[in-house]
Design a protein around this nucleic acid. Structure first.
Lengths: 250, 250
DNA sequence: TGGCCGAGTTTGGTCGAACCAAAATTTGTT
DNA sequence: AACAAATTTTGGTTCGACCAAACTCGGCCA
């Protein structure tokens, strides 16, 4: 008997949606194990007694929902959702939204907000091990001052540590998102002489404040650090903004 | 000429993906205006010189991405993405993730983190108008103590104000998300006598701290308020996960 | 024995024609 | 002008077919 029909005596719904629901529950319950390939489309169409068209639509939806990973021409692979999944699913939308400069600013503001909280947290609750991690990242950052690409990497890594501290898996995912979405704007940042040095010192002052268990100082250091960084980027953005406006009027 | 082929001399890609990209750019550029119906599937298949199968797949993807709204049997409607769109696109994933209690905890922890920052911000930078809003919400909350449903609404509203303060559109979207995702758990919260009263007092203490421009007190009040709320919910969840972070400063 | 290669099979990607039922549109009637 | 019926359009679904890329597996050669 068709398992789909049961959940679909109401013909106003899509058949694919019922299949999606079925597969979804199987994935979540573990009947379809993580990292394992989905049954072939032809198997599924037989089992659910539907056309392959519907099967494909269902799989496409699952893919967009992040429950399976599907590369073209390859068997879709089951993937239990985690917070990273959300970032991926959200990616295109965000990128679209970031075509508006004010969207970038909003995003960056939110990042500052989050990191202010994170450094406060670090200043009050960081363990010796946490601080050791920070110190290590800081020194790597210092060592890379003359290699801008490497400096950027260690910069990212230094900030990332704060997102890891609480052990809450949401925050690393957020850091990943910020990095991915704001990266393009950082790439265009001009290479002012002494910029790396300045940023390293900013990192150090944050670190020092944490060492001294001073959340206010840490927050302040972080805030001015990121505000300054925005200025570096904002200059190049303002150009494109005004360009857009003149293009609009024309 | 087929517009799809151009972006697809590499046959390893899906035809649907190219169509998605095309329509996506048209929506973002405004060539396909917001709130306007998409061309019919048969028109699209002719224009792009592809089969309807591919058209449907493309539309399904756009729908999942949140760029069009498609109810079964109705013409899909163009929808320019905003931060709310993200929440909707993310919704199913999150709900799936929340089948795991630890996921709920992570989410709730992140909410506490965010709101701690928000009330600190409010305590330092809230304008007279902001404070008036808070006072109004607080009084509405007080007036609803004996009507649990109404109390819940005013409770939500009180918290929402903090998310509105900065004027950053990301935060209201986040509040909406937290409300939607955590709602089911709150609904199951037991109706202990005096609970509304207690929560109102907690809100008041937050408000008072903001009045006195004391971010530490505001944060502390918020923290204990939400931690206590979690206990009310946690009991019914039959999961004993502790939330004590002892992050309070002496 | 072990790794490489190629024929044969499976599987995903795409097409096209067709049918149905519901929505949208037009026509007809009062 | 308003409402009801007939007609066209459109989305949802099925079936069958074809292609090319991925996968399998068994034989060849070192």
């Amino acid at each position: 008997m068709s398992k789909v029909e049961d959940a679909r005596e109401d013909s106003r719904l899509r058949a694919a949606d019922a299949v999606v629901a079925q597969l979804e529950s199987r994935i979540l319950s573990g009947k379809l194990a993580d990292k394992q390939p989905l049954p072939s489309e032809r198997e599924l169409m037989e089992e659910f007694d539907i056309s392959r068209t519907v099967v494909r639509e269902a799989i496409a939806t699952l893919s967009n929902r992040g429950l399976v990973e599907s590369k073209p021409r390859f068997r879709p692979v089951v993937r239990k959702p985690d917070f990273d999944t959300i970032i991926n699913a959200t990616d295109t939308i965000i990128r679209n939204m970031l075509t508006d400069p004010s969207g970038v600013l909003s995003l960056y503001e939110s990042r500052i907000f989050v990191e202010r909280g994170l450094v406060r947290e670090a200043a009050t609750t960081a363990t010796k091990e946490d601080i050791a991690l920070l110190k290590q990242a800081l020194e790597a950052n210092k060592a890379a001052i003359n290699d801008s690409l490497q400096f950027f990497r260690t910069d990212l890594e230094f900030h990332r540590i704060f997102y890891e501290l609480g052990g809450n898996p949401i925050f690393p995912a957020i850091h990943k998102a910020y990095s991915a979405w704001l990266w393009p704007y950082w790439e265009r940042m001009k290479r002012a002489p002494g910029r790396n040095e300045r940023n390293y010192l900013a990192h150090k002052s944050i670190y020092d404040a944490i060492l001294e268990r001073d959340p206010d100082a840490a927050e302040e250091a972080l805030q001015s650090h990121l505000a300054r960084a925005w200025e570096d980027v904002g200059l190049t953005m303002e150009v494109s903004v005004s360009l857009d406006r003149s293009a609009d009027k024309g």
